[in-house]
């Protein structure tokens, strides 16, 4: 992996930059790959969330939000991970009607997260192109 000190990529303030620095160990090329993978996988994973929610299928809703939670973690959204965890717990503890508010918050956060990662991905591409 590359040395993280010279020309270090600085992650967006909405992300857990300290954790990402440790996770990628200065390897901005690998960070770019992971961010690209996140943008590739998130729509598919979230489709399962939407389907389970619309079908009021709480078991699959819990499983699918669990997958998204892990995905958010790999791009530094520890706050959204926590929200996902709380929603995951709610799927086991409350009825379908009690999930609506949490679901709406998560949909909004997911969209914000996608926009941030799209921007970060573009920045990483530029950073790595300039570095090569």
């Amino acid at each position: 992996m590359k040395d993280s000190t010279p020309g270090k990529f600085v992650f967006n303030q909405h992300l857990d930059a300290r954790f990402l620095d440790e996770l990628f160990d200065g390897d901005a090329v690998y960070a770019q790959i992971v961010f690209e993978d996140f943008l590739r996988d998130l729509p598919d994973y979230w489709k399962d969330v939407d389907t389970a929610y619309l079908n009021q299928d709480l078991r699959n809703l819990r499983t699918s939000i669990h997958k998204c939670k892990t995905l958010f973690g790999y791009v530094g959204f520890s706050d959204i991970q926590q929200l996902c965890q709380e929603f995951e717990n709610s799927c086991s503890e409350t009825s379908y009607s009690g999930l609506e508010a949490g679901y709406r918050v998560l949909v909004q956060k997911k969209e914000e997260a996608r926009n941030i990662i799209e921007t970060e991905y573009d920045r990483l591409k530029l950073f790595n192109a300039a570095d090569s």
Binding site: M1, Y30, V34, D41, Y74
Partner: peptide, 16 residues
């Protein structure tokens, strides 16, 4: 592992 990114990280760490 059912999450590709997680599996890729593990593979990378194992190789490293």
């Amino acid at each position: 592992e059912d999450i590709q990114i997680a599996a890729d990280f593990l593979k990378k760490f194992c190789d490293k």
